[in-house]
Lab assay of single mutants.
Amino acid sequence: AQEYRALYDYTAQNPDELDLSAGDILEVILEGEDGWWTVERNGQRGFVPGSYLEKL
């Protein structure tokens, strides 16, 4: 798994998404072809927009 940093804040719109704060460090589990990536942070897993992340 790769570590990424959130570039922007994101507020989850659905229960299966995660909130992001700019600067958060996340582990990317799966890069979805639809642009939604499965990530894990502090034991929580959910979808976030891949375009909001940069690889560390």
Results as ranks from 00 to 15, higher is better:
S21R: 14
G32Y: 05
G46C: 02
Y52Q: 05
E54L: 04
D34R: 06
G43V: 02
E31N: 06
L56W: 08
V28Q: 04
E31S: 10
Y10P: 00
W36A: 05
L20W: 00
E40R: 13
E54Q: 09
K55N: 08
T11E: 14
D24I: 02
R5V: 11
W36S: 08
Q44E: 07
A22D: 03
V48F: 02
V48A: 08
E40Y: 07
E27T: 13
K55F: 04
A6W: 00
E40H: 05
L30D: 14
G50C: 14
E33G: 10
A22T: 13
G35N: 08
Y10H: 06
T38W: 11
A12T: 04
D34K: 06
V28S: 05
P49H: 05
E40C: 15
S51G: 09
G35D: 10
S51N: 14
A1W: 03
L56R: 12
G23S: 02
W37R: 03
E33R: 11
N42R: 14
G23D: 07
Q44M: 09
E33S: 13
D16W: 09
E17P: 00
P15A: 12
N42F: 08
P15R: 10
F47Q: 11
D9A: 11
P15C: 10
L56F: 08
T11R: 10
N14K: 14
D24A: 04
E27R: 14
T11A: 13
I25L: 13
L18Q: 03
S51H: 09
Q2E: 12
Y8D: 10
L56A: 13
Q44C: 07
E31A: 11
E17H: 09
T38Q: 13
Q2H: 07
N42W: 06
E33P: 14
T38A: 10
L20Y: 02
L56G: 10
Q44I: 12
T38L: 13
P49G: 00
Y10Q: 01
I29K: 11
G23F: 01
P15E: 14
E3D: 09
Y8W: 10
G50K: 03
P15M: 10
L30C: 15
I25G: 04
V28H: 03
N42A: 13
Y10L: 01
G43F: 05
R45M: 14
D9Y: 03
